[in-house]
């Protein structure tokens, strides 16, 4: 997961794309350390009360992780727990006139480390 997200951030740098997290961890000190270790550069809201927090309640989140892809107008264009949302991101950037092909080869060294 982190390698995939890191890879998106890296490949789509300079394009109108952002990852926004809603984090459900309770221990902020541990989390901050993990953010450093895993080179997590994207911003996250804090879902207070962990997985029972108010943001996830308002979004009716039943499983973690859950991902939504929003277009430039803030319209939900995809939602799920994983899988092929890269192609949705490509399509949406394409709609904005940015042709891009996402591939994740160059982050493979970190994939290995994660296991």
């Amino acid at each position: 997961m982190y390698p995939h997200e890191r890879s998106l951030v890296k490949q789509l740098a300079g394009l109108p794309f952002a990852i926004i997290g809603v984090n459900s961890d309770k221990d902020m000190d541990v989390l901050k350390q993990r953010i450093e270790e895993e080179n997590i550069t994207w911003r996250s809201f804090r879902n207070n009360d962990g997985v029972d927090g108010v943001i996830s309640e308002n979004w009716a989140i039943k499983g973690w992780p859950t991902i939504f892809v929003l277009d430039e107008k803030g319209v939900i264009r995809w939602q799920g727990h994983g899988g092929d949302y890269d192609s949705v991101i490509e399509t949406l950037l394409g709609e904005m006139g940015h042709e891009v092909k996402i591939s994740h080869q160059d982050d493979s060294d970190k994939e290995d480390k994660e296991d």
């Binding site: 997961m1 997200e5 952002a18 997290g21 997985v51 992780p65 991902i67 939504f68 430039e72 991101i89």
Partner: peptide
């Protein structure tokens, strides 16, 4: 901050935990 600060960008909203 606000989610709507990111209008104009494609946003991957990720409900995650470590």
């Amino acid at each position: 901050f606000k989610l709507s600060d990111y209008r104009g960008k494609v946003v991957m909203l990720d409900f995650w935990g470590d």
